[in-house]
Amino acid sequence: MMECCYIKEVVKGFFSLCTGMRVTMGNVFTRPATVQWPRESAPLPDRFRGHIMMLADDATGYPKCIACTSCARNCPSQCIIVTGKKPEGAKKKMADRFELDFTKCSLCGLCVEICPVGALDFSRDYALASYTRNDFTTMDLLQELGSPF
């Protein structure tokens, strides 16, 4: 009786191995799940969280930021520096300096959420690379926008 069970187990084991091999062979004929980066890239979702960027006011082309510094105060990693002053003849303050220390940023998005005027948004940059870290310790977010100063 024992021998019978033993042989049965061996045969059963053998067939379980064959089942496993059938699965992997099935995998060969399945479409690959990977994407051949950089020739093609996976689609980014709408809510993708890249590093933050400053939005421009549509009318003036100046940054929307009013330099209230609530983003800088709320940042868990203290990686935002904002200063602002009033341009001549204007009523509201505007940011004249908005720097992001991207080496510290954890992309949590609290700054985007807290901004009272919706001046910040996530960029869709995901392949950032540079030869020096200085490029990311002080990222000037106002650089590409117009300035009243």
Binding site: K12, F14, S16, L17, T19, G20, V23
Partner: peptide, 14 residues
Amino acid sequence: PRYHDLVTGNVIFH
């Protein structure tokens, strides 16, 4: 079921 075929039933894994 593929997961179970590949691993759960496998005698070596067992």
